[in-house]
Amino acid sequence: MNWARMQDALVHRAPEALSVHLLMVVITIGIAVAIALPLGVILTRPRYKKLSMIVMNVMNLLQTVPGLAVIALVMPFLGLGLKPTIVALSVQGLLPIARNTIAGIYAVGPDVKEAALGMGMSHRQILYEVELPLAMPIILAGIRTSTVYVVSVGTLAAYIGGGGLGDLIVTGLAMFWTEFLLVGAGLGALLAIVLDRTLAYVEFRITPPGLGS
């Protein structure tokens, strides 16, 4: 273990890499939610029921495209850097959110909606006061899956100049510097686990008692 290198990795490289990585994740998830949530809601309206099945299948198919391929494929079109990375990650990251939004809204029992309709609620009110609150735990689970995914694939962004914790790992692999590898990989793992647990906690808190998942 080379202490000078360890210090270099921890003090000089890690703070910036970590903040870039976090920024990348936050922006990506923001974009993904902004697109996936309305998309999921629209696709569950009765009018688009047929379309939603097709979209679900397409999304399942897209989900099988490996992370490295997603990152690599955006390069020829958008070039290098953080922005292309975010675009690539947003596209892949919105899939679990959209899927869970659709699944979550469909999972709301017809009797609950029927009762709400019978009490004179409009479809809009039912969406905001019944469907979305009841589907929220499942939607959040999707956001969580997506977040962990983006943190993970985000480390690959280093290969298209996106920066982040991947930089440390890539340098570490190239030079075979264990210190860089451990700091980069360790922080990446830590970030993913912390975000996962935080979102799991939020999910747990907003799940109404008696609606255990």
């Binding site: 993970s152 793992a189 686990i193 996962d196």
Partner: peptide, 18 residues
């Protein structure tokens, strides 16, 4: 299992190498 699954793949590979 959940915790391991969270670890970014490049990170896990990198740790294994060490």
């Amino acid at each position: 299992a959940n915790t391991i699954f969270c670890i970014p793949s490049l990170s896990l590979f990198a740790v294994m190498v060490t």
